[in-house]
Amino acid sequence: MKEILREIGMIARALDSISNIEFKEFDLAKGQYLYLVRVVENPGIIQEKLAEMIKVDRTTAARAIKKLEINGFIEKRNDKQNQKIKKLFPTEKGKEVYHSIIKENDHSNMVALAGFSESEIETIYHLLQRVRKNVEIDWEYVKKGNTRDY
């Protein structure tokens, strides 16, 4: 079998490394840009949903969110109906940085997909969505404390 997941991993690590280097100028620490993008695109999201979206555990998400809050990129607000629920919103600083992150993302997409036809790009997209959905099933299973059979 081809080592598809290794290829995906190498691509992801390379792009993540580039982003971490380029976003240092905004005081965004490792991987925090992922959280900021989701908050800007989903204002009012709760921390648990954000962790689920990014596919990380709640503790990892909590640390990143705290740093983003301390550095003025996002803010927590109480839910109007339930004061225990904290919703996440981007600050003006967060919204400004978001535009740079999206420009970098668009550029990375162009570089990664150079030489591919529109049809090939559609195919890659749909195939990767299927791969993600397959992996999400195991992710949910293991997250609940289960062990996979190999």
Rank of each mutant, 00 (worst) to 15 (best):
M1T: 15
E3T: 06
L5Y: 04
L5R: 11
R6T: 11
E7C: 06
E7I: 04
E7G: 13
I8D: 01
I8E: 03
I8L: 13
G9K: 07
G9Q: 04
M10K: 14
A14H: 10
L15H: 05
D16F: 05
D16Y: 05
I18N: 04
I18W: 01
I18Q: 02
I18A: 01
S19V: 00
S19H: 03
N20R: 01
F23G: 03
K24S: 07
K24D: 09
F26P: 00
F26Q: 00
D27I: 01
L28S: 01
A29W: 00
K30F: 04
G31F: 02
G31Q: 03
G31A: 07
Q32C: 02
V37W: 02
N42M: 06
N42K: 08
P43Y: 13
P43V: 05
P43F: 12
P43K: 06
Q47L: 14
Q47Y: 02
L50C: 07
E52L: 06
M53C: 06
M53L: 11
K55G: 13
V56R: 05
V56D: 04
D57T: 04
D57C: 06
R58D: 12
R58T: 08
R58V: 12
T59E: 13
T59S: 11
T60Q: 11
T60S: 09
T60H: 09
A61T: 01
R63S: 10
R63I: 04
R63A: 03
A64N: 09
K67Q: 10
K67N: 05
L68R: 03
L68H: 04
E69R: 08
I70G: 12
I70P: 01
N71G: 14
N71S: 14
G72S: 08
G72P: 06
G72L: 06
F73Y: 12
I74S: 00
E75C: 11
K76G: 03
N78Q: 15
N78L: 12
D79S: 09
D79A: 11
K80L: 10
Q81Y: 10
I85L: 13
L88R: 09
P90E: 05
E92I: 05
K93C: 08
G94S: 07
K95D: 05
E96F: 12
E96S: 02
S100E: 13
S100M: 03
I101F: 10
I102C: 03
K103H: 09
K103I: 05
K103N: 11
E104C: 03
E104K: 14
D106P: 02
H107M: 13
S108F: 04
M110Y: 13
L113S: 12
A114G: 08
A114W: 12
F116K: 13
S117Q: 08
S117D: 11
S119E: 15
E120Y: 11
E120N: 09
E120C: 05
T123C: 15
Y125G: 09
H126G: 15
L127E: 15
L127M: 15
Q129L: 14
R132T: 13
I137H: 04
D138E: 10
D138I: 10
D138V: 09
W139P: 00
E140P: 02
Y141E: 03
Y141T: 01
V142C: 08
V142N: 02
R148S: 12
Y150W: 14
Y150R: 10
